[in-house]
Amino acid sequence: MTDIEIQLENVTKTYSGGATSVTALTETSLSIAKGEFVVIVGPSGCGKTTLLRMIAGLIKPTSGEIKIRNKPLWVKNAKSTEAVGELGFVFQQANLLPWRSVAGNIALPLELRGVGRRERGKRAEELAELVGLKGFENASPHELSGGMAQRAAIARALSNQPSILLMDEPFGALDVMTRDAMNQELQQIWLDLRPTIVLVTHSIPESVFLADRVISLAPRPGRIVDIKDIHFPRPRTPETERSSEFQSHIGQLRGLLDSHSKTGKQRV
């Protein structure tokens, strides 16, 4: 049996503010293995971000339990920092601190963990190179393009060598070409470092390209409607994307998500 890294048991999250309350995710159970690459797809508003933020411990489930490496994430109302462990979170926006250089941003998680200046500088340089930002270590975030800022954010999330990497539509704001390149790069990073990755996207091709498992969510209320294993060998290439099997996966997922959306239209 493989080691289970993330476990959700009957997790429900209801946002209640004032008169209205929205159930963003309902009765969701899911196990993610150590080192697995899981991609979550679904239309806007189906609770993808909510799911990711609950795994990160940024918000607490209304009911149900989340366990990280078999330890409950929440004990009463307190987040167990021990359970959170080494986590990397790539947000939908790069969220770089504008008063820090690119290297200073990349090394922020190390700084917060008390790693010395020299070691931080070395790590930041390595990571900048890894994500293709070599030579931009001393640049200021406002000098970066959207794609470069997102790379810096990925490098930052990797800097503390997280065992879990959570990514919320990390390439959503990028153009298609940059996005394809970033997908390849991410796959390579995953092959090199083998973190457990949970990535959220609403691009079906992206999900099939990256995932060991694609988890489809449907809205109102947010829930898992399908889990699909993807078995292409790694590293996957643009060649993989042209295969008929790849296309049939995409077709199936698209049909599935369409059937669950009221309007019958799907953003891809």
Binding site: A56, L58, L87, G88, F89, F91, N95, L112
Partner: peptide, 8 residues
């Protein structure tokens, strides 16, 4: 949230 996910 960046600070929070790093347990600052």
């Amino acid at each position: 949230e960046v600070m929070e996910t790093n347990n600052a």
